[in-house]
Design a protein around this nucleic acid. Structure first.
Length: 497
RNA sequence: GCGCCAUUAGCUCAAUCGGUAGAGCAACUGCCUCUUAAGCAGAAGGUUGUGGGUUCGAUUCCCUCAUGGCGUACCA
């Protein structure tokens, strides 16, 4: 005790003063025989319930619990607002009604404390539904002051690092994550009703396959082996299709050891769906009906608002060939391009930057990103991607240079990626080996997934697969500009002292 | 990785030409039994992100570092 007093004397800062004031009140509560951290409190209503019932509850006894968000003390009577997960309601405490001992206890409470209240509902002179408190029970003492009641918490860094504070004081933040939960729930409901089986496949993989991205590496001690956090679940889900799970999906985290931006978090949530005996065109239909379902369940109309644009989600969505739209937006014919150098020349003529180790396809992507992607506001399926850079996709029968693949763009963002899955084990091995050469160039390492090829050798039915970035989907539906606004605890650097 | 910007009280924000930091909310002490951004009176709260430099004097100018934001690059 003495020691800590000395410490606080040495490192005395204003916030420490505020905390010790509250600790002092906590001590005084204990001295009055009040446990500052009791077990629980039975409420008759949640707050939204009370607000919803309104007049119906007038004069009736209720009890509710929540966090004190504001206090207006007027000597021997006070008004406070308490907030629970569902809303905020006013309460009125009068000394003569709660008793002077209870009122003393109340005076030891602070904004931020949790409290259980019982009393009869009434309307104040100004017409606000209010609990006329007859008894109160402190439920948990808060030792740190909350941000300002009017301006809330604005500092972005604190909002992300201390999301709990953000959630307490910024109601719209809670709304975003409610909607996120609703979207994920809707996806599950939609797929479950269509008899898809939800599964969980390994997060730790000995080969990081299914996409090209730098993985996170970890190590298993007793097996003495390196493992990768998955960059995609794709190869495992298709193993399940081999195993006879013909309709399967997974909603789970992927991990990519790459740059962080408003559109990239190292761990992000991915939906992958596979449906046997269908091709990629059926995934377009699935995409459309999934969006219809989500908008119907959550929005009521097929429209979302981005910063200034209204995005019309009404289906069906156009299907546009990659080369057609490139030609439309740049005036150049990309189907004529022959090789990496030719593509580089084209990029130069369009003033698009690229780096020396970018391949032909990568350069084309840069051109697409600059000239086409920002113009794709309403949903559009871009089709006819080059087969060479879609190693897990089945090529078109009439043109093996083109993959049976589409990407869905909305509001200038890639939302989904899908293809007819390549199920020819010989071709698949050849493509993986081909890809390894590229990887060697990039010094990224990687091996052919022999077990995956073995699975294909047992036979995988014709099959289509779809991947949707759930975080970006939520960004779209919530009008969020940054992925950090739809991830509760986004990745941050270590906090400095 | 690079560029630009930001960092001041627990929170939200001020501070003129470089002259030694102010307010509101919260907290504290009084008063106040229908308030709601309650009110009134009083008092308190700061190593101006970090470390250096220039200067008689730095929140202010210069450099380093840290963290964050935006842009850009990377990312099938």
């Amino acid at each position: 005790m003495q020691e800590s007093r000395e410490n606080s004397k040495n490192s005395k800062s204003p916030i420490d003063d505020l905390i010790s004031q509250r600790r002092q009140k906590m001590k005084e509560l204990r001295e009055k025989g009040v446990d500052p951290y009791p077990n629980g409190f039975d409420a008759t209503h949640c707050i939204s319930d009370i607000l919803k019932k309104g007049r119906e509850l007038e004069g009736k006894a209720v009890s509710a619990h929540g966090r004190i968000m504001s206090m207006r003390k007027m000597g021997k009577a006070s008004f406070i607002h308490i907030q629970d997960m569902t809303g905020r309601v006013q309460a009125y405490l009068k000394r003569d009604d709660v008793g002077s001992e209870n009122y003393m206890i109340f005076k030891l409470l602070d904004i931020g404390d949790f409290v259980g209240l019982s009393g009869k509902m009434f309307y104040t002179k100004t017409g606000e539904l209010t609990i006329h408190v007859e008894s109160l029970l402190p439920l948990a003492k808060s030792l740190r002051p909350l941000p300002e009641k009017w301006h809330g918490l604005k500092d972005v860094e604190t909002r992300y690092r201390q999301r709990y504070v953000d959630l307490i004081v910024n109601e719209d933040v809670k709304e975003v994550f409610r909607l996120r939960s609703g979207i994920v729930q809707a996806i599950r409901k939609f797929l479950d009703e269509k008899d898809y089986l939800e599964v969980e496949t390994p997060m730790m993989q000995s080969i990081a396959g299914g996409a090209t991205a730098k993985p996170f590496i970890t190590h298993h001690e007793s097996l003495d082996m390196d493992l990768y956090l998955r960059i995609a679940p794709e190869l495992y889900l298709k193993r399940l299709v081999v195993g006879g799970i013909e309709k399967v999906y997974e909603i789970n985290r992927n991990f990519r050891n790459e740059g962080i931006s408003t559109k990239h978090n190292p761990e992000f949530t991915m939906l992958e769906v596979y449906n046997a005996y269908t091709d990629y065109t059926s995934m377009m239909e699935l995409c459309e009906s999934l969006f219809n379902f989500i908008t119907k369940e959550l929005l009521g109309k097929p429209e979302v608002q981005s910063r200034e644009k209204t995005i019309n989600l009404k289906t069906p969505w156009p299907r546009v060939s990659l080369y057609d739209i490139l030609k439309e937006k740049t005036g150049k014919d990309f189907s004529e391009v022959d090789g990496r150098d030719d593509m580089a020349k084209l990029a130069d003529s369009l003033g698009v930057k690229y780096s020396e180790d970018n391949g032909e396809h990568k350069i084309m992507e840069h051109i697409f990103d600059k000239f086409v992607q920002p113009t794709l506001v309403d949903p559009v399926f871009i089709v006819d991607y080059p087969a060479k850079h879609s190693p897990l996709a089945k090529p078109k029968k009439d043109n093996p240079k083109i993959a049976q693949r589409f990407e869905l763009f909305i509001n200038g963002q890639e939302i989904a990626n899908a293809y007819s899955e390549l199920n020819d084990p010989i071709q698949q091995r050849a493509k993986m080996e081909e890809q390894m050469k590229d990887r060697e160039l990039k010094k990224e390492g990687g091996v052919v997934d022999d077990d995956y090829i073995r699975a294909l050798e047992y036979g995988m039915p014709p099959c289509s697969g779809l991947g949707i970035g759930v975080d970006r989907l939520v960004m779209l539906f919530t009008g969020s500009a940054s992925i950090r606004d739809v991830i509760l605890f986004p990745q941050m650097k270590k906090e400095s002292d």
